[in-house]
Design a protein around this nucleic acid. Structure first.
Lengths: 268, 268
DNA sequence: ATTTATCATTCCACCTGGTGAAACGCAGTC
DNA sequence: GACTGCGTTTCACCAGGTGGAATGATAAAT
């Protein structure tokens, strides 16, 4: 068995205590974890520096911080979207001959791919993308999803995401507001040039166009057509297949609204 | 300024990448964090040991695990069940040669798959089912779990679920009360014909039989045997392996009761 | 004002535990 | 068979984490 990392274990212990018991003083954490206070202090400082913990100014006690990764997923939504969407995306894939991804909102303006028709043999692109969370500002799925949110939600999510992202993702976040109107009028988004998150994992450079899935007045996810960049021009795919993609998104959204009206009540 | 702890920083980087980008391979994580692979491996192993990450048995990729602190649900049960159940299901899988899924109650009559032995190479079925929440009325896991609840809880949950579900799930919900007695007397449930979650076809149509995991007088989860429909008849699997499945469920339940008696006090 | 108590924080000598380049083993592919 | 790309193991090295003891900081009690 590979060796473990003691410091990492200790940091998890500390975070679990804070997460379970709420706000904690240094001494209390040391007692709970049976670690010496200096050790706890150093680890907590490290966690605070990244905002995984935050520290109250006057009594110095620790609580879970704003940057602690959260995933507030509406469990029913993913299920419902997969159930109503999976046959539709298979049909779309059959008609277009391209790969289709289905992504669901997991809160905070983020998406997770929950189903796909991609088959390596068929489309020449890495198939097992279920579980991936596309970039909010650089992927076609992420952009079209954000653009489709109502203004208030979009602004809130965009600000929050921009605050946590870095590098080219942050640059894309700064640029995003200028792209929103364009995406909204065109009704679809294209994968940003130069963004192909995981060159390692794919068979080739994928290109994608995406549209949002709206149900009632909520934006619940997005679907995209995916193909090998070297195989087709984006323009020709748009000309030939955009209407099919939009139709599919609309069908899924309508069916979802009809079959799961209660999912649309809470805010995303 | 107090010194920071490098290992803790690195572990946060890794967790942030997985949380931001979804499922990740070791090599990809090493590239993203600019750390050598052995270092990433050791940290990930540590995180996996605590189930802050979980690792697909099949392609070894990492995703956020069941014990990663979530603000919403009480994770104690999930945790304990995974801890006591994972060795048992591996043994069961070895003896039967079939895939085994372990699901934990997440409240309101729903389950989430928290561990699995499925390997594509071995069983020819979709391996990455951890995190999936099976249909309450159409999956073998869901049915047997509901049937095993005490009458009052079952009626309440069934009513609530039926109210929110629709389509083929609602149809199954209407039908369910008629199936309960049958399931209770037989002691297991079978996956509904025609129900298989996603579009992705990973080799074939899976079939499953499930039994509930009871601990003390609480129903805490369910486990199932899963195989490729075309490979074995349900009847022959039942004849040969049902008793093993039931034995495993019973062992897990007993061990859970012995090791975590406090979990069984609150109502599910 | 002084004492007491209880925090968090700093210090620093000690040495463990983490490190990472290189080698290995294993699948899958050509 | 040779190759490529994974995850994993090895092992000598020494940075980096450790924790007991000392020091501040703060608030309440005398």
């Amino acid at each position: 068995m590979t060796k473990k990392n003691r410091s990492v274990e200790r940091s998890m212990e500390i975070l679990e205590v804070v997460s379970d018991l709420g706000v904690c003083s240094l001494g209390f954490l040391a007692e709970q974890t049976a670690l010496p206070k200096p050790t706890v202090l150093r680890i907590c400082k490290t966690l605070v520096a990244r905002r995984w913990l935050s520290q109250s100014k006057n009594d110095k006690r620790y609580r879970i911080g704003p940057r602690f990764p959260r995933m507030e997923t509406a469990p029913g939504l993913i299920d419902a979207l997969v159930e109503t969407g999976s046959t539709a995306i298979v049909e779309l894939s059959a008609v277009t001959g391209l790969g289709v991804d289905l992504a669901a909102s997991i809160g905070e303006g983020r998406l997770e791919i929950v189903d796909t028709t991609r088959q390596f043999a068929l489309h020449g692109i890495f198939p097992d993308c279920v579980g991936y969370r596309p970039s909010p500002f650089r992927s076609a799925l992420g952009c079209v999803f954000l653009a489709a949110l109502d203004t208030e939600t979009r602004v809130r999510c965009t600000a929050k995401l921009a605050a946590t992202l870095t590098g080219s993702d942050r640059a894309a976040a700064m640029e995003f507001p200028r792209k929103v109107d364009d995406i909204r009028t065109k009704g679809f988004a294209v994968r940003e040039k130069g963004y192909w998150g995981r060159a390692v994992d794919y068979g080739g450079v994928p290109t994608a166009i995406s549209v949002a899935v709206r149900s009632g007045d909520k934006t619940v996810g997005a679907i995209s057509l995916v193909w090998l960049a070297e195989q087709y021009e984006t323009n020709s795919v748009v000309a030939e297949n955009l209407h099919r993609l939009q139709k599919t998104a609309q069908v899924i959204g309508a069916q979802l609204a009809a079959e799961h009206p209660q999912l649309l009540l809470p805010s995303i």
